[in-house]
């Protein structure tokens, strides 16, 4: 590399590095530091080492200044469960549709890919608000179901975990669809025909040929949906109610109403660890699966 190129590279790379270093890396670091500080009396912090924040979540609280409440662990597990359910439902809904869109004529493919991405750009809060209206006891869902005679009493879905899953599935569908589509689109369709010609039933072809070859897409979609889902607090806030509370809501409360920033930071560290864990495990697996096919 010549001297001039070195100068150019330095000029190009320095602004972004400094900016993200100061306003991204340092803030993440402060979360880690705060999670190990002592909560002060009136919402502040005291600068002394304190591991009971984590103890309060995982069970080694001393029982005097901090008390272990299994409820935090329950909410954490619930967040994991709701995020996993969201991933699974998104996958089941998107897979056949991605397969269908991939088989369309180029013109129509463009149209339907456009239609998939468009709702992603229509404001998140507006889309959640739509589900609030749909799920209300007198909302469209119940009116239609009761009109059809499917149910006699209005379903009480709103402010339950089911509503949270519905809302998250709705807002994260495009995240699952696009990687899945990319994976299914590159699939060699003659292999499907070959499998059929060799006498495999459609189900066998699906399980033994199509699914294994699209593992990278499935994993990528799953990770991209899981990450924003597990720490989400807007969806449970709008649709969830007390029974649909997730770790995100707990963190928000610690920062904005209970004002226990160290405890909130400890919870955020747990979410961050989960996300990093998922990324590490699955990005490796996706690469390996990708290399195999």
């Amino acid at each position: 590399m010549t001297h001039r190129q070195r100068v150019q590279l330095f000029l190009l790379l320095t602004p972004v590095t400094v900016f993200l270093g100061v306003f991204f890396l340092i803030p993440l670091g402060t979360i880690a530091v705060y999670s190990l500080l002592t909560p002060g009396l009136y919402g502040g912090v005291e600068w002394s080492f304190y591991h009971w924040n984590y103890g309060r979540i995982f069970g080694w609280a001393d029982g005097i200044t901090e008390v272990f409440e299994p409820v935090y662990l329950h909410i954490l597990l619930r967040s994991l469960g709701l995020a996993a359910a969201t991933v699974a439902i998104c996958l089941v809904l998107c897979y056949p549709v991605a397969f269908w869109v991939a088989g369309l004529a180029p013109r129509w493919r463009m149209l339907f890919l456009f239609l998939i991405t468009l709702p992603f750009f229509a404001s998140l809060i507006v889309r959640l608000y739509a589900w609030l209206l749909l799920l209300k006891p007198s909302g469209l869902l119940n009116t239609v179901l009761m009109g059809l005679g499917v149910i006699t009493e209005p379903l009480d879905i709103l402010y339950t975990p089911v509503a949270v899953i519905l809302g998250m599935v709705y807002i994260f569908l495009p995240f699952m669809f696009l990687p899945l589509f990319a994976s299914i689109d590159t699939l060699d369709r003659s292999l499907i025909e070959a499998s059929g010609d060799l006498g495999a039933r459609p189900v066998q072809t699906l399980l033994k040929v199509v699914l294994p070859m699209t593992v990278p897409g499935i994993v990528a979609g799953g990770v991209i949906v899981f990450i924003p889902a597990v720490g989400n607090f807007i969806v449970p806030d709008v649709l969830g109610g007390a029974k649909g509370l997730m770790t995100g809501n707990l963190i928000e409360q610690q920062f904005l109403s209970s004002r226990n920033w160290p405890f909130g930071s400890a919870l955020a560290m747990v979410i961050m660890a989960l996300v990093l864990g998922v990324l590490l495990v699955f990005s490796n697996r996706a690469r390996r699966a990708g290399g195999r096919t």
Binding site: F23, G231, S265, I271
Partner: peptide
């Protein structure tokens, strides 16, 4: 590293910036 800010859960980045 340039992809990480996008992948970070919103809430974690939000509170990190608030503390910062």
């Amino acid at each position: 590293g340039l992809m990480v800010p996008m992948m970070m859960p919103d809430i974690v980045l939000g509170i990190g910036l608030l503390i910062f």
